[in-house]
Deep mutational scan, measured.
Amino acid sequence: GKMTGIVKWFNADKGFGFITPDDGSKDVFVHFSAIQNDGYKSLDEGQKVSFTIESGAKGPAAGNVTSL
């Protein structure tokens, strides 16, 4: 299901970062391709987001990332 969290950091040049889930679980990798907006796909440190957990090739990653 949907989770919420805070963006820990995001490197716009490399197109990835990490989200710290509100439930205290392990930080989740986020790739820019998972960001659900029409414009420039980037996130800001400290931004609140909702997301799902998808299993990627390198382990769990955030999917369906939407800013709240």
Rank of each mutant, 00 (worst) to 15 (best):
G1A: 13
G1E: 07
G1Y: 15
G1V: 11
G1P: 06
G1H: 09
G1K: 15
K2Q: 07
K2P: 03
K2C: 08
K2S: 10
M3W: 07
M3F: 15
M3C: 10
M3Q: 14
T4H: 11
T4Q: 12
T4V: 06
T4W: 04
T4R: 08
I6Y: 11
I6H: 12
I6G: 03
I6N: 11
I6V: 15
I6W: 07
I6T: 15
V7S: 00
V7N: 00
V7F: 02
V7C: 08
K8D: 04
K8G: 03
K8F: 00
K8I: 00
K8C: 04
K8R: 10
K8T: 05
W9G: 04
F10S: 03
F10W: 09
F10T: 03
F10K: 03
N11F: 04
N11G: 03
N11E: 05
A12R: 14
A12Y: 09
A12C: 12
A12P: 14
D13Q: 15
D13S: 15
D13W: 15
D13T: 15
D13K: 15
D13N: 15
D13P: 15
D13I: 13
D13M: 15
D13F: 14
K14M: 10
K14C: 06
K14V: 08
K14S: 07
K14T: 05
G15R: 07
G15P: 00
G15C: 03
F16H: 08
F16T: 05
F16G: 04
F16P: 01
F16V: 09
F16R: 04
F16Q: 06
G17M: 01
G17D: 02
F18N: 02
F18H: 04
F18D: 03
F18I: 05
F18C: 06
F18L: 07
F18G: 02
F18P: 01
I19C: 01
I19W: 00
I19F: 00
I19G: 01
T20D: 03
T20M: 12
T20I: 12
T20Y: 05
P21S: 03
P21T: 04
P21F: 00
P21A: 04
P21R: 02
D22A: 07
D22H: 07
D22T: 09
D22L: 06
D22S: 10
D22C: 08
D23M: 04
D23W: 05
D23H: 10
D23F: 06
D23G: 10
G24N: 08
G24Q: 09
G24E: 05
G24K: 09
G24V: 02
G24Y: 06
S25Q: 11
S25F: 06
S25C: 09
S25Y: 06
S25I: 05
S25M: 06
S25K: 10
S25D: 12
S25G: 15
S25R: 09
K26E: 12
K26I: 07
K26W: 04
K26A: 13
D27R: 03
D27I: 02
D27A: 06
D27N: 05
V28L: 12
V28P: 01
V28I: 13
V28Y: 04
V28W: 00
F29D: 04
F29W: 10
F29Y: 10
V30G: 01
V30H: 01
V30R: 01
V30C: 11
H31Q: 06
H31K: 05
H31S: 06
H31V: 01
H31L: 02
H31A: 05
H31W: 02
H31Y: 03
F32W: 15
F32Y: 14
S33R: 08
S33D: 06
S33M: 05
S33C: 03
S33Y: 03
S33A: 06
A34C: 06
A34Q: 13
A34Y: 01
A34D: 08
A34W: 01
A34K: 12
A34F: 01
I35W: 06
Q36E: 13
N37M: 15
N37D: 15
N37W: 08
N37T: 14
D38C: 13
D38P: 11
G39W: 06
G39Q: 10
G39Y: 08
G39V: 07
Y40H: 11
Y40W: 14
Y40M: 12
Y40N: 15
Y40T: 11
K41N: 09
K41W: 05
K41Q: 10
K41H: 07
K41P: 10
K41Y: 05
S42I: 11
S42A: 12
S42P: 08
S42E: 10
L43C: 03
L43N: 00
L43E: 01
L43W: 04
L43Y: 02
L43D: 00
D44L: 13
D44P: 10
D44K: 15
E45A: 15
E45D: 13
E45I: 10
E45N: 09
E45G: 15
E45P: 15
G46C: 04
G46Q: 05
G46W: 02
G46R: 05
G46P: 00
G46N: 07
Q47M: 09
Q47V: 09
Q47C: 08
Q47F: 03
Q47I: 05
Q47H: 08
Q47K: 06
Q47G: 07
K48V: 10
K48N: 09
V49A: 02
V49C: 07
V49I: 05
V49D: 00
V49F: 00
V49L: 03
S50W: 06
S50L: 06
S50N: 08
S50C: 10
S50I: 05
F51G: 01
F51S: 02
F51A: 01
F51C: 02
F51H: 02
F51M: 04
F51Q: 01
F51K: 02
T52E: 10
T52K: 08
T52P: 00
I53W: 10
I53N: 05
I53H: 06
I53D: 02
I53F: 08
I53T: 08
E54W: 10
E54R: 14
E54A: 11
E54I: 15
E54C: 13
E54T: 15
E54M: 13
E54P: 02
S55Q: 12
S55F: 12
S55L: 14
S55I: 13
S55R: 13
G56P: 04
G56K: 12
G56I: 03
G56C: 10
A57L: 14
A57V: 14
A57D: 12
A57R: 15
K58A: 08
K58E: 08
K58Q: 09
K58T: 07
G59P: 04
G59C: 05
G59N: 07
P60Y: 07
P60H: 09
P60N: 08
P60W: 09
P60T: 09
A61R: 15
A61H: 11
A61S: 12
A62S: 02
A62W: 02
A62D: 01
A62E: 01
A62T: 02
A62N: 01
A62G: 03
G63E: 10
G63H: 11
G63V: 13
G63I: 13
V65R: 00
V65Y: 01
V65K: 00
V65Q: 01
V65G: 01
T66W: 09
T66A: 11
T66P: 02
T66K: 14
T66Y: 09
T66Q: 14
T66D: 07
S67D: 11
S67L: 15
S67Y: 08
L68K: 05
L68E: 11
L68F: 12
L68S: 13
L68W: 10
